[in-house]
Design a protein around this nucleic acid. Structure first.
Length: 153
DNA sequence: GCCAACGTTGGC
DNA sequence: GCCAACGTTGGC
């Protein structure tokens, strides 16, 4: 089966690439967007490549590599009333939100910044990350984009 | 099913 | 902290 590639955003103040390096595997809780959920549920398979992206920070960009470590399964935080991600409308017998486990691979030698990626828009082709107004936190990356971005490292 | 109001994301 | 973009909610 062909390996697929993804980009996943995280705010470094919430959960950084260094935090992932420390714990090794992290359940990617808190995704509350249907399109992002559908990518995890319908698209992701164990072993797929992940570009780890820092958002909402001084230098937004790709900072590391990870891989999909599990198929999608229910996100327990949706049922936890004390969690920021609690969703009272979701029922355990029919969970609305899913997550995958994400395994650390390596940190990049440097940050491939959003600015750089925007500057290379022609070479990257259609890429959800640099589309105007993009807010998706989980998005697909083509093999060509993956190779191109890593060649910038 | 439309759409105004509202909430969130995320770059700057 | 501002605000553009966009998703969701809920009244009608």
């Amino acid at each position: 089966m062909t390996k697929r590639y993804w980009l996943m955003k995280s705010e470094p103040e919430e959960f950084s690439i260094d935090a992932l390096a420390k714990v090794k595997v992290e359940p990617w809780s808190g995704v509350r967007n249907y399109q992002a959920r559908n990518y995890m549920r319908d698209g992701m398979r164990v072993g797929d490549g992940i570009l780890f992206y820092h958002s909402n920070c001084p230098e937004p960009g790709v900072v590391g590599l990870a891989e999909v470590a599990s198929l999608a399964h229910p996100d327990p935080t949706q049922f936890d009333p004390r969690s920021d991600y609690h969703d009272p409308a979701s029922r355990p017998e029919e969970p609305r939100w899913l997550l995958v486990d994400v395994r650390f691979k390596r940190k990049l030698a440097r940050t491939i910044t959003l600015d750089e990626l925007k500057a290379q828009a022609d070479e990257l082709g259609d890429f959800a990350l640099i589309r105007r107004g993009n807010r998706l936190s989980v998005l697909p990356v083509t093999r060509a984009q993956w190779d191109f971005i890593l060649a910038l490292e």
